[in-house]
Design a protein around this nucleic acid. Structure first.
Length: 227
DNA sequence: TAGGCCATCTGGTCCT
DNA sequence: AGGACCAGATGGCCTA
């Protein structure tokens, strides 16, 4: 994880992140050394996914590909049940005792449900890929609940940062004094980093803008425009 | 060994 | 009727 990501995560200072940190440790967010070299992402391939990957060549296929059990051999179904922990002895009267038609229907429904859950997991993977945490094989993947909670906080933080940037632009344009406190979302960057000049200083717009030379947006483009 | 997380199966409910 | 969605149950894997 780069320093920027670390700062972003550190900025999510609320109960949720605290809870996540406590539950997963800093290594889950890339602050630490992970779970050791011998323990790469534990959820990257479940037994069931292993089986499916053997079937399709991908660990988490979804949408459109053939995964329905009507197309699987019976041995494959049994293997998948075993790998998923399914034990028909503990589900008396389940598939085995049902008529062939009902069994076929049940298998179809199961396959659909499996695809649906795979799609859901794909979406969660997509979410993980855009929120700031360590994307490394040596770091455990965020759990589902952690992903959702972190994403929620990340969105809230981004909204706060955007609002602060708007206020800053208004300040630069009108020379107004910013009286509102620095949002906690930006706190880790430090007040000096956000406002690298005194609010009472008579810095020119260009000087102010030069202080934000690293800003990756066009927010300060106006400074180069002639009045 | 307990607890957390997960995938899967299953039956029910709702929607088109 | 068929599909989507949901929640409960179950058991495997992993870590502390």
């Amino acid at each position: 994880m780069n320093v920027g990501d670390e700062n972003l995560l550190k900025s999510i200072s609320n109960d949720t992140l605290l809870d996540l940190t406590q539950r997963y440790g800093q290594s889950a967010f890339g602050f630490g050394a992970g779970h050791g070299a011998g323990s790469p992402g534990r959820y990257s391939l479940t037994p069931a996914a292993d089986f499916l990957s053997g079937q399709t060549g991908k660990s988490n296929e979804s949408g459109g590909e053939q995964t329905s059990d009507e197309d699987d051999g019976f041995d494959h179904l049994e293997s998948r049940k075993r790998s998923a922990g399914f034990d028909e002895e503990k589900h008396p009267g389940a598939l085995a005792k049902k008529p062939k038609e009902q069994r076929s229907l049940r298998l179809s429904i199961n396959a659909r449900e499996r695809r649906r859950m795979h799609d859901l997991n794909d979406a969660l993977d997509g979410l993980r890929s855009v929120i700031p945490y360590a994307h490394s094989p040596s770091v455990r993947k965020l759990s589902k609940i952690a992903t959702l909670l972190l994403a929620k906080n990340y969105i809230l933080m981004q909204a706060q940062a955007l609002e602060e940037m708007r206020r800053l632009v208004a300040y630069l344009n009108q020379g107004q004094t910013i009286t509102s406190p620095i949002p906690t979302a930006l706190a880790p960057f430090g007040q000096a980093a956000v406002y690298p000049f005194s609010s009472t200083a008579l810095a020119t717009c260009a000087e102010k803008c030069s202080s934000f030379s690293g800003t990756p947006s066009n927010l300060f483009k106006h400074c180069n425009d002639k009045p």
